Computed example of a mutant assay.
Amino acid sequence: MTSASLPRRLRCAICLRAQSACICQWVTPVAHRVEVLILQHPLEVANAKGSARLLHLSLPHSRMLTGEVFSEQVLLGAPLEPQGATQTVVLGAKHNILLYPDSPEDRALNLPAPPALAPELLSDPSRLRLIVLDGTWRKSRKMLYLNPPLQQLPRLSLQDMPASNYRIRKAHRADQLSTLEATCAALMQLERCVEPFQPLLRAFDGFVEQQLGYRGGSS
């Protein structure tokens, strides 16, 4: 039998994974006020360990795009309507904030210092849009370098975070979080509310256990 004649694995139309590995049971809709734009590196698309798709499906006011370089209109443009039948642009500018650490490595790349995050921007979470880079540390840093509009944004840098439960991917430090964990932590901070995001974090634990089960529970 040739490779061309092999049956294709059936895929879930929602989570885009093989039906045998569907993660839709972990999708947990969250009522959130801050809009989220997830920029996914192309190498993350087929990564079964990635959490960005689960995050996107659980956040009604989110959009996920794949690529390394994006237009300024996409990065800084008008917000979108919540997920649904239409994805039309609506009126009303958002204050964009990049979820990214203020790293000394930026200076090694000759990146400009990001502007300070003005406290007045945080007064109304519904006027905020959080931009999240989904990729390894090396890939996300490259995305920042290739997209000057992102370099001009104020940053939200998470501090003193607990150890991640993301046991299915290797981390260089215990406090390095998955895209889903980091985004939930950022939304908790921006919306000054913790409880709405707890069900999604518990669902994420189930997602991690599911992935560990595929490899016999090894870490």
Rank of each mutant, 00 (worst) to 15 (best):
L57C: 06
I97L: 13
Y214E: 09
N165A: 14
G84L: 09
A182G: 10
A174E: 15
A85T: 14
K142F: 04
T136N: 04
M143Q: 12
H61Y: 12
L75F: 11
L177H: 15
P125T: 02
S5D: 14
P29W: 06
Q40A: 15
V45G: 02
E44G: 05
D124W: 00
H95W: 04
P149M: 04
P114S: 04
N147S: 04
A48G: 13
D134Q: 03
P112S: 08
I14P: 00
A108Y: 10
P148W: 08
R127D: 11
A52S: 13
L16F: 13
C15F: 09
T179Y: 03
L190N: 01
V36C: 07
Q151M: 05
L75A: 07
A21L: 15
P60W: 05
R155A: 04
T179H: 04
L37Q: 11
R63G: 10
Q83R: 12
L153H: 09
N47V: 06
V89D: 08
Q19V: 15
A48Q: 15
N165K: 14
A18Q: 14
R155G: 08
G92T: 07
P154F: 05
L109P: 02
H56Y: 12
A78T: 12
P29N: 04
E195S: 11
L158V: 07
P79N: 05
A4Y: 11
C193G: 06
P112D: 08
P199E: 02
R215V: 11
R107K: 09
A93Q: 13
Q151R: 12
V89C: 09
I97C: 08
R169I: 07
D205I: 00
A18D: 15
P42K: 11
R215K: 09
V132E: 00
I38T: 12
Y145K: 12
W26T: 04
D205N: 10
N96S: 12
L6G: 03
Q211Y: 10
P79H: 01
C15G: 10
L144Y: 01
F70H: 04
A48H: 14
S178V: 02
G67C: 06
T28Y: 02
P119V: 03
H41M: 01
V30K: 01
S20D: 15
S62P: 10
G50N: 15
D175N: 15
Q73D: 15
M161K: 10
H41D: 13
C184M: 14
Q210G: 00
H56E: 13
Q73T: 13
H61V: 08
V27D: 05
L177M: 14
H56V: 13
T136A: 01
C22H: 10
G77E: 10
E105Y: 07
L57Q: 12
L91E: 14
Q189R: 14
L187E: 05
L39A: 06
